[in-house]
Amino acid sequence: MKKNQILMAMAMVASSFYACTEDNTTTPIDTTNNGTFKVYTLNDVTEVQNLIADTIIGTSAQGQPVGTGHFTFFSLKNRAVVPLTDSATSNWDVAFRGTTILTNAGTSGPGMGGAYTHVGIFADVSSFNADSTIRTDAAPVYAIKTGSNKGWYVYDGPNNLITPIPGRVLMIRGADGTLYKLEINNYYKGGVTPLTTATSAIKLSTQRYYNFRYKAL
């Protein structure tokens, strides 16, 4: 057990070290989004591409497209995906499954997490509002509201497409209490929303790929 913790700590140190090296890179970062999972940081802003959030693998008995049902856990601090086995720890800050986003507190985890949605421009946000606006997850109601036009996205029913609402900045308190601002720019593979005329097979197979950027405040 103790050994494990040491290993974990080493891994964290290593990953933060890795992140630090990238912070100070002098060579240009390749920001082209080719559909693969990628994390890079420039001027303290970390951009994440193609974070897979329970992609669709089949159809439920009711005919609804479904995935495995597991969340993808992510550490904003370490800029890395956290293994599923750590879901009950404070090692992750945000978790994604379909359009649902968890923060590490309340019914979701043991951390000091929480969130609220701010309407404005990412670059303009420099501080958190008073603590009272931060909510914690209380399933089935989450700090980041689920549902079309309620939290971070809008669902276009006739065209079966999910679009992040521009001007919604997710204000997230990490598991350790660190404050972040986060903006999602796309929900599809390669950061490209399919055409409205695309087949439903394309729309279903390319969704649940999170593309976002965040910054610690």
Partner: peptide, 12 residues
């Protein structure tokens, strides 16, 4: 109070 997206898909 109305936003749209820039070339990178982020709000402006």
């Amino acid at each position: 109070r109305v936003y749209t997206i820039d070339a990178g898909g982020f709000a402006r």
